[in-house]
């Protein structure tokens, strides 16, 4: 599967919709690390994360016809499939038991994550980015985006009113945008 061809997002979607496997190869080469990163944030074991990633690509392949570009970018659609599949995989088993174990094992998980971050050069950039973000914003985004919390659950967990969660999401993403724009102009 050596898909060296370069696609625009629209060409890629069209190629995928027409059943072109080399387009899927391109998609894998360009997006699998981002999708795997998201899955790894949600699913604790590497083995389960690999299963979820396989499932995600099969879903993408089968359901690409339902992707509607007027509803958002391809990337957002892909990430949401990865996220939802990862969350579903965690909820399949006794979710409550799992989350108890997760609470106990939190420290272990974070060590593993640090180990993972060391493997990937992109994380040097992440560290810089995270340092620029307010910790409570980062925490909220991570809970909502990577850990699959609903806004209500996040409000309860972080012990802040639901209204604050809503306004804080806005501020958090504004800050993310500023940091991101600052970064791209630097390059």
């Amino acid at each position: 599967m050596t898909a060296k061809a370069k696609y625009t997002e629209e060409e890629l979607v069209n190629a995928l919709k027409s059943g072109d496997q080399s387009a899927l190869g391109f998609l894998y080469d360009n997006y699998s690390a981002a999708l795997f990163g998201v899955i790894m944030r949600i699913v604790e074991s590497q083995e389960n994360a690999e299963d979820v990633l396989q499932e995600v690509f099969v879903k993408i392949w089968r359901n690409i016809s339902s992707y509607d570009k007027s509803k958002g970018k391809l990337y957002t659609w892909l990430i949401n499939i990865a996220r939802n599949s990862a969350i579903d995989s965690m909820r399949v088993k006794d979710y409550k038991l799992k989350s108890q174990i997760r609470n106990i094992d939190n420290s272990v998980g974070s060590i593993n994550r640090q180990y993972n971050t060391a493997q990937h050069p992109d994380h040097i950039g992440l560290k810089a980015l995270v340092e620029k973000m307010k910790p409570e914003y980062k925490l909220l985004i991570d809970k909502l985006y990577f850990e699959g919390y609903t806004q209500e659950e996040a409000a309860e967990e972080l012990n802040i009113p639901l209204g604050t969660v809503k306004t804080r999401i806005r501020s958090a993403i504004s800050q993310l945008r500023e940091v991101f724009i600052g970064e791209t102009t630097l390059k």
Partner: peptide
Amino acid sequence: IEKAIQAYTTKHSIAPPTNLKDKIF
């Protein structure tokens, strides 16, 4: 907003094991 989130998630990228691509295909 999508771009900002994209930037954030890209920063969290972890390369999957190399044999996974073949399995998926």
